[in-house]
Nucleic acid binder design. Structure first.
Lengths: 232, 232
DNA sequence: CGCTCGATTGACTACCTTCAATGAAAGTGG
DNA sequence: CCACTTTCATTGAAGGTAGTCAATCGAGCG
């Protein structure tokens, strides 16, 4: 693992996720305490951040990059059950053992907090616990939306919904469209499809003029209304 | 709706879910406040408790019975995204609008709390918020397990896992086995399958001697190891 | 007794997966 | 800088699983 470095004083003020992350609930006195236990760290794409079953020794704010939350079957089948974007909380406070594997899809910047001190801090600040509750409920709502998709939609609907969803969540790329933070395999893991089905559906949409694929991971949405209609 | 009645003083002490529900976090002074705003109500099977989109005016503890949490597609396709059992919290505090439809699968007993007073109470009792957070995280973990099932497993695995899961959560019926709180259609909604597929899989398992179906909803598990093996 | 609703079973179809080969892009070493 | 290797994506063909449509069955109820 790359070495980490202490959180530079004042750095929070210029942090990219200062207003959306957990730290937004803290004002100056508590923020100093938070800063004192925080460590910034950069991890390369592909790096496993936590493995399912590991003792969860820390939580973190995701400052930049994208993480996948993966759940595995004993026989090796995997399903991505969540994606984490900048501002999202990485790891679950008050949970002793990691239930899912977290993998960096891109290079990521984390703001790490050892779990014990963080929990102590949270316990004394109801507003923070309250925010965590709201977040957890929002994540649950999203997971349930996802369940509907996995259980009931067919491949074209899944792909169209996914492409539109990613556009909302990712920054636009130079030249329009956006840059997917994952390959076809991970798309399949998200949607409960095989890599071949994903590829075929994308090709079909390209052929139909609904999207363009300038490069493997660069997506251009050409016919948003049509995509929205397919997505349902 | 059937009329409700005020919460009889002292009733909490003999409540079936007194130790597992939200009220377990409250000691006597706060419990009195909770009791003051609580109302008991009984609803018949099939009753819609909340419709998606409704303003969420209350939360409740489920005292007895089973509820389904349903999410709907615009075109009518539905997916059950959660089941609620005695002791579970019904509705989400701090959420203004219901995201899902809640339907009683059996006759249910609720202990209703108007949302506003409940939230006020919660805000002043960090321990309760903390419990809610833990619950929400547990529910999220369960939803994710469910996602893995919906996305990756095939019909026999889904059915076997479901039958074993229900056995864990329901009380044993007289004469062994248990009584399913739902019909084939709802099983399909839980597992992302059609009613016909559910029926066929159950018939196949019956033919294989793994289960017995003395009546429509009465399930007997005859070969648990085999079922567990199929469930994966 | 007949009606209604839910469950079962069958026949057929469609969709997605699996297996396999080809193609393209990125990384490595000469 | 180019050949080689590796990885990822695409495409094709075949097969299987679950969905759809439709008929039958059976239990519960008026």
């Amino acid at each position: 693992m790359p070495s980490d470095h202490p959180h530079p004083a004042g750095r929070c003020a210029v942090c990219a996720v200062r207003d959306s992350a957990l730290c937004a609930t803290f004002a100056e006195p508590e923020l100093a305490a938070l800063r004192a236990i925080g460590r910034r760290r950069t991890l390369p794409a592909g790096q496993i951040v936590v493995s399912a079953g590991d003792p969860a020794s820390f939580c973190a704010n995701l400052v930049s990059g994208v993480l996948k939350v993966v759940r595995e079957e004993h026989d090796g089948r995997t399903q991505i059950v969540g994606l984490l974007f900048p501002g999202d909380l990485v790891g679950e406070p008050f949970v002793e053992e990691a239930r899912d594997t977290l993998v960096a899809l891109t290079e990521i910047d984390l703001c790490l907090y050892p779990r014990q001190p963080l929990e102590t801090l949270l316990t004394h600040h109801p507003a923070a616990t309250h925010l965590l509750l709201r977040r957890a409920l929002a994540t649950l709502a999203e997971a349930r939306k996802w369940m509907l998709m996995l259980g009931r939609r067919q491949a074209p609907e899944k792909i169209a919904a996914f492409l539109l969803d990613m556009e909302r969540r990712l920054e636009p790329a130079a030249g329009g469209g956006y840059h997917l933070p994952m390959g076809r395999a991970a798309m399949g893991e998200v949607l409960g499809l095989t890599i071949e089905t994903v590829s075929r559906q994308l090709s079909a949409m390209k052929r139909a003029g609904m999207i363009a694929l300038p490069s493997r991971r660069h997506i251009l949405l050409l016919d948003r209304p049509k995509l929205a209609q397919i997505a349902g």
